Lab assay of single mutants.
Amino acid sequence: MQIFVKTLTGKTITSEVEPSDTIENVKAKIQDKEGIPPDQQRLIFAGKQLEDGRTLSDYNIQKESTLHLVLR
């Protein structure tokens, strides 16, 4: 499924993921596309910071959901 990751600069990254993918996994995909190390990434969805060990389905993230990427 496709999800969108919006950066603070307003850029939107499209990523191909599975509901069973972990947040860590998603951060790795963002690193592949943007070159941002996962340890600098914080992903936010519905006002919550997403934890690395959890999966997209844990957070009820569905296709075409938009996550927000904040850098630390």
Rank of each mutant, 00 (worst) to 15 (best):
M1K: 03
M1A: 03
M1V: 05
M1D: 03
M1P: 03
M1N: 04
Q2E: 09
Q2T: 15
Q2F: 13
I3G: 02
I3K: 00
F4D: 03
F4I: 08
F4G: 02
V5C: 03
V5Q: 00
V5M: 04
V5W: 02
V5D: 02
V5I: 15
K6A: 07
K6Y: 06
K6N: 06
K6M: 10
K6R: 10
K6F: 06
K6L: 10
T7H: 07
T7C: 14
T7S: 07
T7D: 08
T7F: 15
L8K: 10
L8I: 12
L8F: 13
L8E: 15
L8N: 12
L8H: 14
T9Y: 14
G10M: 03
G10Y: 03
G10A: 04
G10V: 02
K11H: 11
K11R: 11
K11M: 10
K11D: 08
K11P: 05
T12C: 12
T12W: 10
T12A: 04
I13K: 02
I13E: 02
I13M: 07
T14K: 09
T14E: 08
T14C: 09
T14M: 12
T14G: 05
S15H: 13
S15T: 15
S15Q: 15
S15R: 07
S15E: 13
E16G: 05
E16S: 11
V17L: 05
V17N: 04
V17S: 03
V17R: 00
V17A: 06
V17W: 05
V17Y: 06
E18H: 14
E18K: 14
E18S: 14
E18M: 13
E18R: 14
E18A: 12
P19D: 06
P19M: 09
P19Q: 06
P19S: 09
P19W: 07
P19G: 07
P19V: 08
P19I: 08
S20L: 08
S20Q: 09
S20W: 14
S20R: 08
D21W: 13
D21S: 08
D21Y: 08
D21C: 05
D21K: 01
D21Q: 05
T22V: 05
T22E: 02
T22K: 08
T22D: 02
I23E: 01
I23C: 01
I23P: 02
E24M: 13
E24A: 15
E24L: 14
E24K: 13
E24N: 08
N25D: 12
N25Q: 14
V26H: 00
V26L: 14
V26Y: 00
V26G: 00
K27M: 11
K27V: 04
K27R: 05
K27S: 02
K27F: 06
K27C: 02
A28I: 13
A28H: 11
K29N: 06
K29P: 00
K29Y: 10
K29D: 05
K29F: 11
K29R: 10
K29L: 11
I30P: 01
I30Y: 02
I30R: 00
I30C: 00
Q31R: 13
Q31E: 09
Q31Y: 15
Q31H: 14
D32G: 10
D32T: 11
D32R: 12
D32W: 10
K33M: 13
K33L: 14
K33Q: 13
K33V: 12
K33W: 08
K33Y: 09
K33N: 07
K33E: 09
E34N: 09
E34Y: 14
E34R: 05
E34F: 15
G35S: 05
G35T: 03
G35L: 05
G35M: 05
G35V: 03
G35Q: 05
I36C: 04
I36S: 04
I36K: 03
I36G: 03
I36M: 05
I36Q: 03
I36V: 08
P37V: 05
P37H: 10
P37Y: 05
P37W: 06
P38I: 15
P38N: 08
P38D: 04
P38Q: 14
P38F: 13
D39L: 09
D39W: 14
D39F: 10
Q40T: 08
Q40V: 10
Q40A: 10
Q41V: 12
Q41N: 03
Q41Y: 15
Q41L: 11
Q41D: 02
R42E: 13
R42L: 14
R42S: 11
R42Q: 12
L43T: 00
L43Y: 03
L43M: 04
L43S: 00
L43C: 01
L43I: 07
I44L: 12
I44V: 09
I44K: 05
I44E: 08
I44N: 05
I44A: 05
I44W: 15
I44Q: 05
F45V: 03
F45Q: 02
F45S: 03
F45H: 07
F45G: 02
A46E: 14
A46F: 10
A46P: 01
A46D: 13
A46C: 10
A46V: 06
A46I: 06
G47Y: 04
G47C: 07
G47K: 04
G47D: 06
G47Q: 04
K48M: 13
K48F: 10
K48D: 06
K48P: 01
K48R: 11
K48A: 09
Q49W: 14
Q49N: 12
Q49V: 15
Q49H: 12
Q49S: 10
L50Y: 00
L50I: 03
L50A: 00
L50T: 02
L50M: 07
L50N: 00
L50C: 02
E51V: 08
E51Y: 06
E51S: 07
D52C: 06
D52G: 05
D52Y: 04
D52K: 04
G53V: 07
G53S: 11
G53D: 11
G53C: 08
G53R: 09
G53T: 10
R54C: 11
R54V: 06
R54L: 11
R54T: 06
R54G: 06
R54K: 13
T55M: 10
T55D: 02
T55I: 06
T55S: 08
T55R: 10
L56T: 01
L56R: 00
L56Q: 00
L56M: 05
L56E: 00
S57G: 10
S57A: 14
D58H: 10
D58W: 12
D58K: 02
D58C: 03
D58G: 03
D58P: 00
Y59E: 02
Y59M: 03
Y59H: 03
Y59N: 02
Y59S: 02
Y59D: 01
N60D: 10
N60I: 03
N60R: 07
N60L: 06
I61S: 01
Q62V: 13
Q62A: 10
Q62R: 11
Q62K: 12
Q62G: 13
Q62I: 13
Q62T: 13
Q62Y: 09
K63M: 10
K63N: 15
E64L: 10
E64S: 10
E64P: 04
E64Q: 09
S65I: 04
S65Q: 07
S65L: 03
S65R: 03
S65N: 09
S65K: 04
T66C: 05
T66I: 13
T66G: 02
L67H: 00
L67M: 05
L67S: 00
L67Y: 00
H68E: 11
H68Y: 15
H68K: 07
H68T: 13
H68P: 00
H68A: 06
H68C: 11
H68M: 13
L69D: 01
L69R: 00
L69H: 01
L69F: 03
L69I: 05
V70G: 05
V70S: 07
V70T: 08
V70E: 11
V70Y: 12
V70L: 13
V70I: 13
L71P: 09
L71F: 08
R72H: 12
R72W: 12
R72F: 12
R72C: 11
